[in-house]
Every structure is written in structure tokens, then in C-alpha cells.
């Protein structure tokens, strides 16, 4: 990959994203070890928060650097992703009250992935409106 074409903010975001993914999977690995000490388990669970906070600063800096149309596109993407995720979460919550749901398939631990997925769908839809 030619990293010279990526802006400093983009490079910061990429580094933070790589670090976050690495610490996330390291945390998952540590948490899967049977008999690991409780302080180590808590530390492993919390470590990915730091690179994620760093990633967040890069995302905010990138948003501020965008022109007004790109900012509007981002807003529309979130405007689609956020309410749709809320409706899915609410529906799952109500269904859970109505019938027992299989925790491994429909657990809230898996539902977090919906938001970024719907954000990218929203981004594609919003971009197509202004093409």
C-alpha cells in the first residue's frame, strides 16, 4: 500500500484502527484462557478502549476536515444507520420478552456489528444521491 498518498489524519486513523483490532483480538485470546487471573481478565477487557479512543480522535479530525457535502453525506449515513439499529435492538428486546431467543445467534454481543454495517450501507445510499 502506498502510504504517501494517505493524509496524516488518515495515517493516524489507520494506525489506531490496526492497534484497536490487534488489542481486541489479543483481549479475546486472553479472555478465552481458562483460569486466567481476574485482574488480567479485566485489564485485557479494558485495553482495547485506549486505541479506540485514539481512533475516535482521528475520526473526528477527519470529519472536521471534510467539505460541507461530505459532512452531510456522513450525517445522512448515520441518520440511516442509527435509527435502523435502534429498531432492530428494540425488536430483539421485545422478541426476547415474548419468546426465548438463542443467545449465541441473537445475543446483544453480536448486534454491535449492525451499526457499522448499516453505516456503510447508509454511506453508499447517501453518496449515490449526490453523484
Amino acid at each position: 500500500m502506498d502510504t504517501t498518498r494517505i493524509s496524516p489524519v488518515g495515517r493516524r486513523g489507520l494506525a489506531a484502527a490496526v492497534l484497536f483490532v490487534a488489542t481486541f483480538f489479543a483481549a479475546r485470546m486472553i479472555l478465552s484462557i481458562e483460569g486466567a487471573d481476574m485482574p488480567l481478565r479485566i485489564l485485557a477487557a479494558l485495553i482495547p478502549v485506549a486505541p479506540f479512543a485514539w481512533l475516535l480522535t482521528a475520526i473526528v479530525a477527519r470529519l472536521k476536515a471534510m467539505d460541507e457535502l461530505e459532512q452531510r453525506i456522513q450525517l445522512e449515513a448515520l441518520g440511516i444507520a442509527f435509527p435502523v439499529t435502534m429498531v432492530i435492538l428494540m425488536t430483539l428486546g421485545l422478541l426476547e420478552l415474548a419468546v426465548p431467543l438463542p443467545p449465541e445467534d441473537l445475543s446483544y454481543r453480536h448486534v454491535w456489528a449492525l451499526l457499522p454495517m448499516l453505516y456503510f450501507i447508509g454511506l453508499a445510499l447517501a453518496r449515490s444521491r449526490y453523484r
Binding site: 467539505d67 460541507e68 457535502l69 461530505e70 452531510r72 444521491r129 449526490y130 453523484r131
Partner: peptide, 22 residues
């Protein structure tokens, strides 16, 4: 203008109305 080519294209094609400063 300090914007992307996509923004200029969207304005030219009446798909986006710029804000007052732009």
C-alpha cells in the same frame, strides 16, 4: 474552493445547494 470535485459536480447538477459561505 477548497472542496472535493464531487461537491462541485453535485452543485453543478443541482443535486446539492451549497451553504452561504461556499
Amino acid at each position: 474552493l477548497g472542496v472535493s470535485r464531487q461537491t462541485v459536480n453535485a452543485i453543478e447538477n443541482d443535486k446539492y445547494d451549497p451553504m452561504l459561505p461556499l
